[in-house]
């Protein structure tokens, strides 16, 4: 047969220019950076002691002294929101780092070893899937007493299966690539292949997944604190503030709940948008 395609795919591929993160993506990064900076500098930025109760100053509107007003106990809202950034951001950060580290290790080891190890790991993950994050957090809190530590531990356990499942299937795909066989034949050791090649190639996916997980963790931790089972009052925390401000709403003072809610939505939205951008880019690079 006559083959007319003389050089297959000789046509110049229209260079797929990486559009980058785009203005929206960079805005999200800016928002996250700003919030992180606030969390670090909070004690110096806060104009008042966030826990200073002054019942005479309860539910004040915004004024020169209290820029965002005060809560039902007369505490300065701006200071509480600034300081609250700390526990509100550190909690999700811990969840993401621990759950990703553990989930990643489990996934790559079980994908690499295969066989019964993989079967057992998959089975355990299946059972962990049976516990929705918030429910597991409630159970763990019931056992270990309310607090940020217990809630973080619970969410780490609840998130491991989601991270492990995604990474495991990606690692299996990567493992079946011919270059892995080539490395094995050259006598490269399993740990080196796993870390220097498989893990390195999965990095964009992991970064994208972690960014999205941060958003979920933030929502779940704030929800646990909102239930009164996470961060304990009087510590300033956005989730707690949404809850403690709730009675004041009915009295016509919604500011504490609304400001805290707005900050949660802002942070979660920024992480979601950035996570979506990272996901798009990681998919584009693997295609």
């Amino acid at each position: 047969m006559t083959t007319l395609t003389l050089r297959r795919r000789a046509l110049p591929r229209v260079a797929r220019t990486d559009p980058g993160l785009g203005p929206v993506g960079w805005t999200a990064i800016g928002v996250i950076a700003l919030l992180a900076l606030i969390a670090v500098l909070a004690p110096w930025l806060a104009p008042h002691d966030p826990n200073n109760i002054s019942l005479l100053d309860a539910n004040l509107g915004s004024s020169g002294d209290h820029l965002l007003g005060t809560d039902a106990s007369g505490r300065d809202l701006l200071s509480r929101l600034l300081v609250g950034a700390r526990s509100s951001l550190i909690g999700p950060l811990l969840v993401v780092v621990l759950a990703t580290a553990l989930g990643l290790t489990v996934a790559i080891v079980s994908a690499w070893l295969g066989g019964w190890v993989d079967a057992v790991v998959s089975r355990i993950l299946d059972i962990l899937f049976a516990f929705p994050g918030v429910l597991l957090a409630v159970l763990v809190v019931a056992v270990f007493r309310a607090g940020l530590g217990a809630a973080v531990a619970a969410l780490v356990i609840a998130y491991i299966p989601y991270i492990a499942r995604t990474v495991r299937s990606a690692a299996l795909r990567e493992k079946s690539q011919p270059y892995i066989t080539a490395l094995t034949i050259q006598g490269v050791g399993a740990p080196a292949i796993c870390v220097r090649h498989i893990l390195a190639n999965l990095m964009p996916l992991i970064v994208a997944q972690s960014t999205l997980t941060f958003g979920y963790a933030m929502v779940d931790l704030a929800a646990v604190s909102f239930l009164g089972l996470g961060v304990q009052p009087p510590t300033a925390d956005w989730g707690v503030m949404v809850s403690t401000g709730q009675p004041s709403i009915l009295n016509g003072y919604p500011q504490e709940s609304l400001y805290a809610s707005a900050l949660i939505v802002l942070a979660v939205g920024a992480f979601n948008i950035l996570g979506d951008r990272f996901t798009e880019r990681s998919q584009r690079s693997t295609r």
């Binding site: 929800a223 949404v242 401000g245 709730q246 009915l250 016509g252 809610s261 949660i264 979660v268 939205g269």
Partner: peptide
């Protein structure tokens, strides 16, 4: 949907309460 995905249920609840209760 982008905004909706960033709205935790308790935040929506608070917003609804502050609108419909007051």
């Amino acid at each position: 949907t982008t905004v909706g995905l960033a709205l935790p249920s308790f935040v929506t609840a608070i917003a609804l309460i502050s609108v419909f209760a007051v």
